[in-house]
Amino acid sequence: MAARGLRLGRLLVIGVPMGWLLLFFLAPFLIDFKISLSEVRLAIPPYAPLLEWADGKLVALHLHLTNYRYLFTDSLYVSAYGYSLKVAAVSTVLCLLLGYPMALGIARAEPARRNLLLMLVILPFWTSFLLRVYAWMGLLRNNGLINNLLLWAGVIDTPIQMMQTDFAVYLGIVYSYLPFMILPLYTNLEKHDGTLLEAAADLGAKPLAAFLRVTLPLSVPGILAGALLVFIPVVGEYVIPTLLGRPDQLMIGRVLSDEFFANRDWPVASAVAMLMLLLLVAPIVAFQRLQNNASEAR
């Protein structure tokens, strides 16, 4: 009796969140996939049904791969996917270059200062993403703060075009995603045993050598977690390239959104999403492995 109650309770605790995620996270991808095989149509909703029913019987199944073929033949999509992957890769490296020393510095600060520094990293994470990108618009515009300062200081005679450039996109992305790089790195670096470095120093290792041969290899899981937390969402980034980026080179998140909202072509938008998901499957699985290992190691 008690055992059955226990089993039922366990089942409920697992089942409620699981049911929610199956319905609202997994099922949507299946529907997305289904619609990506459909044809656009002037109707509400604007796609043709895959299955044709007559008198309760299935009479036809319409599958269209045209949407996918379209993605590979139209250069707009190919270049948007390529550009998104490039931007995500470069931004990940930039976040790592800036984030690693910061995480290291925080991990090695005295405990009292460490909490303050950590809060300073987390605070931007709590404030609106959109507003933080917007804040850069005020700095980067032709008549923005940076250009005004440089003009005033006599460094330049004419404003530098910074908005709507690759530079602005990288700046905005590194700025917004930096905490995602620092936090997992910090969690990793903070656990390192300081005596290892002392041992290395006692054995005559220079600080750089000790860093390269002790700290860096130990921090690989942190680096990977941070890199994936930056890379995966940046591939689909929409807000930053829309506000700061080039009008002539779209990222794939913007293309998806335009297909959906401007062109009302739901099947093509779904295909764009499915292909993006396919590109991201490997990094997402890697991220989950990492999360699993981390939770099992504890």
Binding site: D32, I232, L277
Partner: peptide, 14 residues
């Protein structure tokens, strides 16, 4: 980590 455009579009379709 899921890009928001994918989550958003899929949920709407659901």
């Amino acid at each position: 980590v899921m890009p928001e455009v994918i989550t958003g579009l899929s949920l709407l379709l659901l």
